[in-house]
């Protein structure tokens, strides 16, 4: 009956080996995930290479776009962290752009009939990637926090101006909230990408199933089709928003580290 059967909604997250590689006993095979990391990063590098090849007073379109991105992240870093944030600007910029492009490239539709290895893959829909990025951010926060404030960095967990008795309650809460940061950061991005792509796939699957069923049901296929279009638009917004949220939260945590002693 289901002649137009679609692949299951989980297939798009399946990691497929393309080239077997290993360093020692560690498996570092080139997979579809690795391929899309390379595609995204390659595209970013190509774009910025074009944008900066002839840095002109009167910029062309590519340079203007790069400058808009630069100013956007630069303002974000300055407004959130302050002047100390300047040294984190390259990190936040790389982070924002890497996530943004990974999210957006994940929205490229897969051409029908391609082998699984060539399917579009959203690298940020995997917990390993988002958790690694959030752990990197938190590691930088902790290292920078202790380097900048010394032991006073721990004042982050015991804000001044509170009755001493409150510390019994406050310190554990602050500690848990701090420790949950990398998890929430990682899971927010992963879950958004994961859920968005599942919903897209489900709506698309409904369209295929309903059209394949024939008769009145074929006409009904219009509803999930409209839904799929709406979710696609929403996913583009989410793709940008999640990259932005990751970047701004990174800035806020770095700001905490920079100003921990002032608390």
């Amino acid at each position: 009956m289901n002649t137009f059967r679609a692949a299951g909604p989980m297939d798009q997250f399946e990691i497929v080996r393309i080239v077997d590689l290993s360093v020692g006993s560690i498996d570092v095979s080139l997979t579809n995930s690795a391929l899309w990391m390379l595609i995204c990063t390659g595209a970013i590098i190509a774009f910025f290479f074009t944008a900066t090849r002839r840095a002109a007073i009167i910029p062309n379109r590519v340079q203007s776009t790069a400058e808009v991105l630069y100013e956007f992240v630069s303002d974000l870093v300055r407004d959130t962290i302050g002047p100390e944030g300047r040294k984190f600007f390259p990190y936040v910029f790389t982070l924002f752009l890497w996530i943004l492009i990974a999210n957006l490239f994940g929205m490229i539709p897969t051409l029908p009939g391609l082998p699984h290895e060539a399917h579009t893959f959203t690298t940020t829909s995997h917990l390993a990637v988002t958790l690694a990025l959030s752990m990197l951010t938190i590691t930088i926060v902790i290292v920078y926090g202790f380097w900048k404030n010394g032991i006073k960095f721990l004042k982050l967990f015991a804000p001044s101006g509170v009755p001493p008795a409150m510390y019994i309650l406050l310190v554990p809460i602050e500690l848990v909230s701090f420790l949950s940061r990398p998890l929430s950061l990682a899971i927010r991005l992963f879950a958004n990408m994961f859920a968005g792509h599942i919903i897209l796939k489900l709506f698309a699957g409904f369209v295929v199933s309903l059209v394949g069923a024939g008769g009145v049901l074929s006409v009904m296929g219009l509803l999930p089709f409209i839904g799929a279009i709406a979710v696609t638009a929403l996913e583009f917004l989410v793709a940008f928003l999640q990259a932005y949220v990751f970047a701004i939260l990174t800035c806020i945590y770095l700001s905490d580290a920079a100003h921990a002693a002032d608390h």
Binding site: V28, A34, M37, T41, L133
Partner: peptide, 16 residues
């Protein structure tokens, strides 16, 4: 699949 993902993430993110 994690080691491969982390490896390529480190490579691409590091280069970028």
């Amino acid at each position: 699949t994690w080691p491969s993902q982390l490896f390529w993430l480190a490579v691409t993110f590091g280069i970028l």
